[in-house]
Design a protein around this nucleic acid. Structure first.
Lengths: 180, 180
DNA sequence: GTCTATATTCTGATAGAC
DNA sequence: GTCTATCAGAATATAGAC
């Protein structure tokens, strides 16, 4: 069983993704995490501290993901696009935390810190794609395609009928200059 | 001066974009719109009715945009991508309302209605791009690029240094088969 | 470290005057 | 059609026992 602190963060993440920032209350988090309100507030002294805790987790996972994307068997583009697509977010992975943090991009004082953290993740992803492609415009394009899929994951919008992520990746491979 | 009803909707839209769904309260809306709480609740009987009102506006503007995108001087792709990029959202235009509605994609009972409305806008945009490109995968790719820019507009993430939307469009034109 | 109980502020909504 | 005043409930946060 994970520590109470991690259970709280997991529950917070899940609630943000499934019900959105507006619906996330401390009561909802404690119910989902199976701890008491006092227990939660021992680990995170306020609702904003909870948000800051999620940002810390985002930074940790982003650092871990930087290794994963560069050592992905079928390349950085495929890794980036696949993990962005609906169903591509694995528990404990960067994508899941990223989706949760997107829902925080508003809110009070933490707003700027959230945007900074997202910008850092974004810049790291672009660097990894550019390392593989050696083509700034194409690297940006590939990243935007992944980000577009993120947005669809976020809103639950279905794909155009008859199309799959694999077809998208095949097309991107056509556009990429030959690599070693 | 616009009607009180429109001023309320404008203020609601702005607050959603600038401060996010979690921060939008009826008090905040009435302060930004310059009406009283009673005045607001005369036009929109509840907070959910306010959300429904914004969805109605989204549908109106989406219908108007369907004409604009097909008669855009430099083509549907350029229109879609440009209006998705930071700074591309004009007051009274579809993009601004779309960005606001994205922030509602959570929240209680209206959640499914919000997702349905977003899916409709998305399907209409894809159809317009496909009409121009006659290439389903490329049309989807172009749309995802636009959606990726939407996401950046939403989070305030800066572009990779040295790159511009025009370079992105130039590249997309290279990938598109010749058109009449 | 985790719990229960309580204090306090805020939010959505109603009532009724103008 | 728009306002002021007010209520009931929910939300965050505190106090203090275990």
């Amino acid at each position: 069983m994970p520590s109470a602190r991690d259970r709280v963060l997991d529950a917070y993440e899940t609630l943000l993704i499934e019900h959105g920032g507006a619906a996330v209350t401390l009561d909802a988090v404690v119910a989902a995490a199976g701890v008491s309100k006092g227990g939660l507030l021992y680990h995170f002294a306020s609702k904003e501290a909870l948000a800051v805790g999620l940002l810390d987790r985002l930074r940790e996972r982003s650092a871990a993901d930087a290794d994963a994307i560069r050592s992905a068997p079928d390349g950085a583009v495929a890794y980036y696009v696949r993990t962005s697509a609906p169903g591509g977010a694995s528990p404990g992975g960067l994508t899941r935390t990223y989706l949760a943090v997107l829902r925080l991009a508003d809110s009070t004082a933490a707003g700027q810190a959230v945007r900074d953290a997202l910008a850092k993740v974004d810049a790291d992803g672009y660097a990894a794609l550019q390392d593989e492609l050696h083509d700034p415009v194409l690297a940006w394009l590939a990243q935007l395609v992944g980000d577009g899929l993120y947005l669809r994951t976020l809103t639950g919008t279905p794909m155009p009928s008859g199309l799959s992520v694999d077809e998208l990746l095949e097309r991107l491979r056509q556009y990429a200059p030959r690599q070693a």
